[in-house]
Write a protein that binds this DNA or RNA. Structure first.
Length: 640
DNA sequence: CTGGGGACGGGGCCC
DNA sequence: CGGGCCCCGTCCCCA
């Protein structure tokens, strides 16, 4: 038995502090992903509370909890409990909630919470009846509960669904939450009807998360909800489990496992409903006010003070400032891609626009930074190594050094950007291409039409990529790529196929996919005539033509020449017999505008068939004599 | 078992 | 910043 503390309130104060820090994201060193919700917390706290979580946090900073065992909303409650020791002020009817929490707490091995739930259930006289009464899955918090957990996204349906669960017994994972995603759509539909959440949108409007740019899907296709895809039950391990039980976040294995050809649409099998089903039900019942939710969201978005890419974030901000011509090196941190896309204008004060005031001085930036709550003031408490130019503190000299190095890179960059790219001035040496694309990369000689694109390109040469993913830390050269990457983290697929409900993260994928339904196969193999709906499949197919079993280039000259001749003939409107002749006569080849137009694909094709790089192929094709650099081709073409 | 095709996810990058 | 395209890789199915 521990001796009583000399300061009895010590533990409470400590916990209050920790919870306060958690809600601000301060010193949070682990992210818990539960389906499509993300939580930040402290490893130490989790490890001290849950045997199960303890086993996970030692290995990873990003934990993906099995949402079949614990739903996001239940985990929110549990996390609140861990940090407050309270289950909240639940309604009298919340025995159902306690049941669900109990099941999840058992799974997470939080013994105190298990005991508390049992106690509450017994007090309500429900504990003995839970097996038959069943627990709902409380997609949202109990209405009487006050949540403090910052959550980036909560897209859940709270309609209770009777399920069979027996506390204290091994919990069927589905029982903990299966109503959450697949329960009655009534509430979600209501939201839709009230315009709070478009039916095709995946995310909670409360959270302001909307990465969708298009809403092409039909509203809640009934055949999606009929559970027709019985593969799902295999995946979920339970015959009555609803479709879509598989994770929609990053659980690709289950995604793959549950997806199946939609060709069967015309037959007996339902379309891959699991892709859209979770989204359709992703209607938040979060009771938090919109503002409150946004605040939590923003808290979540705040950078972790000690993450090693913080310096690059600063750098990113400088880049943005550079791009936008504004001074705000500290106004931007890695943010979730949807934030700006769906945030009302009045929220922009916490976003990019905040930094648009003109004072670029470090102190002003720092102050603005603080005002924006992007950094907690206390974060400087142990960040004793301060960068003089920008005032930022770091906990170690190593991190400061890394940061300073980033400054050096910035300076190099700014030095470059001080001298904005200028078009070539030497008209005498300009080719047509130079006139059209006058901005040349100093590193690789690639040319661009405008300086912004050149600047964008030049980032690809940097050793350090300026846009890190806030979740996994992966870095990107373009912010857009990073936000697109974030979509995959969040499982957001805004683009839905009208025909089958399949959803995609990108418009282009949907376009590509639609060819399956239309039967269109615009990509034809010039060698064998095979047609493909997707260009990438043609490309991989072409490799089959050009690559031998050993992986080495298979230079089948008869095939290649035939193909090139056919290709040329197609493009020039000539007979195929003439094509080879033309291929060997550069002057003819380059005199026809049509030919020039076809040079690019021809070069591509040549490259693929001859194992040359495309650039090399283009060079070969544009030089005289044509194909002169490859003796094998000359030999082939010069033969009768 | 293997190769090929179909379909899709993710990243790079230009516009 | 988003759209679009390219490329690489993967999974699944089927012959």
């Amino acid at each position: 038995m521990l001796d009583p503390m000399e300061v009895p309130s010590h533990s409470r104060q400590l916990l209050l502090q920790l919870n306060s820090q958690r809600t601000k994201g301060f010193l949070c060193d682990v992210i818990i992903v539960v389906q499509n919700a993300l939580f930040r917390a402290h490893k130490n706290i989790l490890a001290a509370s849950s045997v199960y979580l303890k086993s996970l946090v030692v290995h990873d900073n990003l934990i993906n909890l099995d949402h079949e065992m614990v739903s996001p909303s239940i985990f929110r409650i549990i996390l609140d409990f861990i940090y407050t020791g309270r289950l909240g002020d639940a309604e009298p009817s919340s025995e159902q909630l306690f049941g669900a929490v109990l099941a999840a707490a058992s799974y997470l091995q939080i013994s105190d919470l298990v005991s508390l739930c049992k106690k509450k259930l017994k007090r309500n006289g429900k504990y003995c009846h839970v097996r038959t009464a069943g627990y709902p899955t409380f997609g949202s918090l109990g209405r009487g509960l006050r949540a403090t957990t910052p959550v980036i996204q909560s897209c859940f349906n709270s309609t209770p669904r009777p399920i069979d669960i027996a506390p204290g017994e091994p919990v069927n994972p589905i029982n903990t939450h299966c109503g959450e995603l697949y329960a009655s759509m009534s509430q979600g539909n209501q939201l839709h009807q009230h315009g709070l959440c478009p039916p095709e949108r995946h995310c909670s409007p409360l959270c302001g998360l909307d990465l969708s740019k298009k809403s092409p899907s039909r509203p809640s296709g009934q055949h999606h909800s009929d559970g027709g895809d019985n593969r799902e039950s295999t995946v979920s391990g339970r015959a009555d489990s609803p479709p879509g039980a598989a994770s929609v976040l990053t659980n690709h294995s289950s995604y793959k496992e549950t997806s199946h050809p939609y060709q069967k649409l015309d037959g007996s099998t339902s379309p891959p409903a699991q892709h859209s089903e979770p989204y359709r039900n992703n209607v938040s019942n979060n009771h938090l006010s919109r503002t409150e939710s946004r605040d939590l969201m923003f808290d979540w978005m705040k950078p972790e003070p000690l993450v090693n890419y913080v310096d690059e974030s600063d750098r990113e901000k400088d880049l943005d400032r550079e791009d936008k011509g504004e001074g705000s090196p500290l106004s931007q941190q890695p943010r979730y891609p949807s934030m700006e896309s769906n945030e009302p204008d009045d929220d922009k004060s916490t976003s990019e626009e905040t930094g648009s005031s003109g004072d670029p001085s470090p102190s002003a930036n720092l102050e603005r930074y603080h005002c924006n709550h992007l950094y907690e003031p206390e974060s400087y408490g142990d960040n004793l190594y301060v960068c003089i130019p920008c005032g930022k503190g770091f906990p170690s000299s190593e991190q400061l050094n890394a940061h300073v190095e980033a400054h050096n890179e910035e300076e190099l960059y700014h030095k470059d950007s001080m001298d904005p790219p200028v078009p070539f001035l030497d008209k005498s040496s300009q080719s047509l291409g130079d006139i059209i694309r006058p901005y040349r990369c100093s590193s690789c000689d690639k040319t661009y039409k405008d300086p912004a694109t050149l600047r964008q390109h030049e980032k690809t040469h940097w050793l350090t990529r300026p846009y890190p993913c806030s979740i996994c830390g992966k870095k990107f050269t373009q912010r857009g790529t990073m936000t697109r990457h974030m979509r995959s983290h969040l499982g957001l697929k805004p683009f839905a196929c009208d025909a089958c409900g399949m959803r995609f993260t990108r418009q282009y994928r949907l376009t590509e996919h639609m060819r399956i339904h239309s039967g269109e196969k615009p990509y034809e193999c010039q060698v064998c005539g095979g047609k493909f709906a997707q260009q990438r499949n043609l490309i991989s197919h072409m490799k089959m033509h050009t690559t031998g079993p050993d992986g080495k280039p298979k230079l089948d000259f008869s095939d290649s020449v035939y193909a090139m001749a056919k290709f040329t003939a197609d493009h020039l409107g000539l007979k195929q017999e003439k094509a080879a002749e033309i291929l060997s006569q550069t002057s003819h080849f380059l005199n026809d505008p049509k030919t020039i137009e076809s040079l690019y694909p021809l070069a591509k094709f040549t490259a693929e068939h001859l194992g040359l790089t495309q650039e090399k192929a283009a060079e070969v094709l544009s030089q005289s004599p044509l194909l002169g650099t490859d003796s094998r081709i000359i030999e082939r073409f010069s033969s009768p």
